[in-house]
Design a protein around this nucleic acid. Sequence first.
RNA 1: GCCCGAGUGGCGGAACUGGUAUACGCGCACGACUUAAAAUCGUGUCUCGCAAGGGAUGUGGGUUCGAUUCCCACCUCGGGCACCA
Length: 817
Amino acid sequence: MKNYDHKKIEKKWQTEWEKKNLYKAKEKGKKFYSLIEFPYPSGAGLHVGHIRSNTAMDIVSRKRRMEGYNVLFPIGWDAFGLPTENYAIKTGVHPIKVTKQNTDAFRKQLKEIGFSFDWSREVDTTDPKYYKWTQWIFLQFYKKGLAYKAKTYINWCPKDKIGLANEEVVDGKCERCGTDTEKREKEQWMLAITKYADRLDKDLDLVDYPDRVKLSQRNWIGKSEGMLFTAPVKDMDLEIETFSAHFEAFCADTFVVIAPDHPLLQTLVSGVKNEKEILLTAKKMVQDRSKAGFEQKEPTGIFTGKYIVDPVGNGNLPIWVASYALADYGTGIVKCSAHDVRDFAFAKKYNIPLKPVLFPEDKDLAKKVLNLELCFSDMQKGILKAPNIFAGRIAGETREEIIKYLEEKGLAEKRSSYKIRDWVFSRQRYWGEPIPIIHCEHCGMVPVPEKDLPIVLPKVKSYQPTDTGESPLANIKEWVNVKCPKCKMSAKRETDTMPNWAGSSWYYLRYMDSKNTKSFADSKKIKYWSPVDWYNGGMEHTTLHLLYSRFWHKFLYDLKLVPTIEPYKKRTSHGMILAEDGVKMSKSIGNTVNPADIVRLYGADTLRLYEMFMGPFEDAVNWNTNSIIGSRRFLEKVWRVGVSFNDKKKKKDPSSPKNSLSVEKVLHKTIKKVSEDIENMRFNTAVSNMMIFISEIEKALGSGEAVPKESFKKFLQVLSPFAPHITEELWNIFGEKKSIHISKWPKWSEKMLEENEVKIVIQVNGKVRGEMYIGIEEDEESVKAKATKENSVLKYLEGNVVKRIIYVKGRLVNIVC
RNA sequence: GCCCGAGUGGCGGAACUGGUAUACGCGCACGACUUAAAAUCGUGUCUCGCAAGGGAUGUGGGUUCGAUUCCCACCUCGGGCACCA
């Protein structure tokens, strides 16, 4: 009997599959598009976490193929990014070269695990043939006015003298050197994702995402509905707008705050005698705010000397500059009252008068509110238990009634506000897609003509960002200086590059037609493959990549370039794999696990199986090298049983008994369980059921029962998505000519799952006291009668009157006395 | 502070829609095979108790004939957000 030699088997079939193009997708038949988040090819190599999520989708893809679908399961590289650039800065090796090395290593490693990717569609975001279209899509944004330049604050590290992406700032400190970062004003490219905020929120209703993903996107978008008030500034030809989501207590408003970085502030205070002081104080507030980081600081403020005339009759309200007011939320100006904790604290600090109108039910607390010792801000308890303040009718009214009142009187209008901000889309970095814009003194900003795309990254000597915070590209004169496409005069290229989220915002579309040179993908192919049927990825991408790509997709939909409103029909999320002690695996701690080592020692099939078995797919799990042996043992059993079927030397027992019924039953249960568990990503229980099957078959064979070959082959088929190599080898040994991976997914028979006798548990007062077997169709009365006569139960009934008997069909009887 | 998620044997974890808590795996113990070891196979493995029986799913209550599952309060851990009016 041959031993299970994973090295030989795995190599053999990987080569064979590749030769036969077994997993190549064609545009024919009923389609299924399954997608994993394409990896960032880091120098650290493949992580065991990649294998967990990839195996899951590989299993789904393989099952779909066996179910007759034409499956697209593609792979590529999200290769722009900071680690590669930082490595280049340190070593001087060109990022192109580093990327090539890393993708080669990743490709090799992925192939060793036996994923059923269609390698012919491989994409690389750093390939000019790819980023030509990333740039092209950017130009479409620009043409529609959704890509624009604006002054914003960027994170600046004063030590490294570079601008940092938000992701590089951890707790307000530079990720690289730990220095406190500052905010610096800089012109940045922005993408107007806020224009799509409402649709991004609403259309979540159309997709099959986990609730926690939807919730988290909704929180991020942060839609809140409220009222917009318009008020004239006293003695000034100026009107200001204030937004409030909690406007119920509008009768309590006694002052107004404006954000220190609000664009109207300058106008508002011009001519006020301490104008300079106000503006200086405001500027300082902005600086302090960025430094404060996570510490909630005491609010500071300064009076502007101006008042609004309150539209809802609270008189003239003083306008203050307040550090806690945000310029980019709502209108940046707020009417304030005693019923908001921040307003309350601010007013107390600066002795601004307050007049509470809302009171809690508790008398003592209400008294404290009235005496301004306490801020009552719970509008939810909603109904205003207020003294009659306004127009004789606000007290006791609900939110809806107040909205109606304000609208009817024309005092305010409904408005929604969002937390989400426009997307800062430029980086002052080398390793990203150049933004295809030319700056001309005469014509202003001119988009690069589409025929000139791609704008290829030029060679530079140093990848170090410049002292001024500009991209290293700014130093390449021969690249920067160009002719203006419009007036042909000399002009300069934009030197900012795109963030690494750009290429990943549309890669799933490129996979549909990855070689196309005329468009980002052929429209017929897009139509055939859209939408992505199942997309698995990490929770950490919920509010960045996943949201960004939904945004891009909707934009392309508006341009009629894609046929669906949403890119991904279904989304699932995997949990992280942590080190054995429950902390993140990281190179610096030295607690990483190299998948290649596991593959060498136990084989890819064992690794795949182990990662599916280790715990619930959506939860974080700790790696445990000691437990891998269990999966390996299971595969060895599969191997032994499989080989024994084909052992020619083994003589058939002439008095062979009839086929083992117990194995048949477990087989059908296993087919059902595995089929359903894959759909629900409950791989761990699928594996455990397959383990039960193999024990059962070993037991049966050991006791001389017969098991038909076909039963075992069906088992191999359901195991094949998990362990593609060993099952292919055994399938082959059974004499099958075609691959197991294009065989037909087995069906289970409900009839085989039915039992004609069932075990019934007998409880007395909810405690298990015995059990009995009954026919499945036996009627309730006779089951109850039987239960009360059961020997093991009798002694518990002695001396008691049976009050009630509960029968749960096919499960238990509970005798209550 | 706000919003999610999770607490079950020595460990990873099962448990359908409220119906035998601890499936499956790891580990451990004992046994078989072996000169021996490895591998493999078998048996056992929540806890107290000689037993009959009792107690256990983070803690405390509640609903129910019956609760890991539903409700309320609290504790602990993990994740996300950051003055969002």
